[in-house]
Write a protein that binds this DNA or RNA. Structure first.
Lengths: 267, 267
DNA sequence: CGGACAGTTGAGCAGCGTCAATCTTGGTGG
DNA sequence: CCACCAAGATTGACGCTGCTCAACTGTCCG
């Protein structure tokens, strides 16, 4: 957790095209990696125009989901990866005793379904937190193309590896940190991820309910609520429902225990 | 966590070649995937004899580490993956404020260093918990070979994917489980992993100190110690130092909250 | 024999969960 | 347009789980 490890170190307010949520209008146009707004976070990164062209040929269709709809369930046969174009998702796993754990929140440019390759079956659930759209990537074809295009191969490994790195950071967070630290770290994390996607780093909408945040952080909804109120009392953030504005990024990053601010104070 | 997802569902005591720790004698012989005792858990799984032959040509050398030695550190340039032949390792990450989190315990047949691909730099530490030996896999060459050998490609994806799945299970464990459940789940997990490697599922040596177990589980060493004593009082296990014997596998699996026993009660 | 380190055990306390009441919000229908 | 409802969010009181601090034991090795 902490900061998006590949996020720019210095925050530039001018990056933000919008301070509101991600745009939601391109739902039905043909898939087009070449000018996709999240291409540099997604599979096409570092591919040549010709390679992107071949990639587009196999990214057959788009799928649009309304808030609350499920993209896949544990047990579903694995056929596709999904690249998020817009919106956001939560991934969950379910224990033998039935209770569920939120394992990720996924934003545009991120791939869903990577954990389903081995065993040819999904082992987790992915549910849209808001109206969202994804590119459907038939993995068999993607695999074949990767066999011919080393740069794509490379990018697939990178994404897998990046996921593992992120999970390590999540484990660090959940391991032995206070509720306050976890909450602050999540806010910093979401902030840096939105920032990387060109949105405001300091004003965003949490697309998930408090219960999901709590579950993800290993806390209760009550504790999450109390902490947000506390941060607000301390003038670190302003909250109104699911809208969050970060008033003091430095203070928040100190609460998060990482000194990963957007200043060049460095890591 | 819970059970090794691809472990056999029924435990057969006759599988065990030995009830003591892993053997430690093959240290200096040439690398030979074809007859490696962990090949079916490692890269060679599902490769033809000819393909294994090509794999052996690039697995240049072996490296032997004594207990406590470090295989790699965060920040080291990434050049190799490491396949564990014998012994065991802990992976850790270090937070900005200096405190460390144990993220995995790795056993023979498992690959270390997968999280270093993106960014070309290790992001975690790997330290031998006992005298151990690993195969050194120069990733550039492995990547090249995978480009030509789809089955190897496939296996690399599988291992990445499997890692992600395992991490999800760890998150589930750390998310919202009691100390007792976590401890029982770790014992079940180690049991099933040893069993899969041909060792006893009910008698093994924990190669890591209590502090590492505690750190991994998000607990304190005192709590771990108290729980082991409690399990022993309840005749679920017998502990003597780092030696553990599971006396009641069913009871332990129930404590772990999973109904993943070795009986065909089935999940 | 002694020192260091790992592990165990106990007493006390606090962070966060539980339970329950209340408030807010957005959607729906009259 | 407003009343109503259900789901989500907030707030408070209270208690348990697991942490802290500290003393003690056992074991390995020089």
């Amino acid at each position: 957790m902490g900061c998006d490890s590949s996020a720019p170190r210095r925050y530039n307010g001018a990056l933000s095209p919008s301070v509101d949520g991600p745009p939601m209008k391109d739902a039905l146009s043909a898939v087009n990696c070449g000018n996709c707004s999240v291409r540099r976070l997604c599979l096409p990164a570092d591919l040549s125009a010709e390679e992107i062209d071949r990639l587009e040929k196999i990214t057959g269709k788009r799928r649009v989901l309304r808030a609350g709809e499920t993209l896949y369930r544990a047990g579903d046969p694995f056929a596709n990866l999904f690249a998020i174009r817009s919106g956001s998702f939560k991934s969950t796993v379910i224990a033998a005793d039935g209770d569920t754990q939120v394992t990720h929140f996924a934003l545009p440019g991120e791939l869903l379904g990577l954990d389903a390759y081995s065993g040819r079956m999904h082992s987790s659930f992915a549910e849209a937190l808001e109206d969202s759209s994804v590119c459907v990537l038939p993995f068999a074809q993607l695999e074949g193309l990767a066999q011919e295009v080393p740069a794509l191969q490379h990018q697939i490994y990178s994404i897998f590896s990046e996921e593992l790195k992120k999970e390590n950071e999540t484990l660090l967070l959940l391991g032995k940190r206070s509720a306050e630290t976890r909450m602050a770290a999540l806010l910093m994390n979401i902030s840096s991820r939105y920032s990387r996607r060109g949105y405001s780093a300091t004003a965003f909408v949490l697309s998930m309910p408090r219960t999901d945040i709590a579950n993800y952080l290993g806390l209760t909804a009550e504790t999450v609520s109390r902490l947000l109120t506390k941060f607000q009392r301390e003038k670190v953030i302003a909250v109104r429902g699911r809208e969050v504005e970060i008033l003091d990024l430095i203070a928040l990053s100190e609460l998060a225990g990482t000194h990963c601010s957007y200043e060049d104070a460095g890591a």
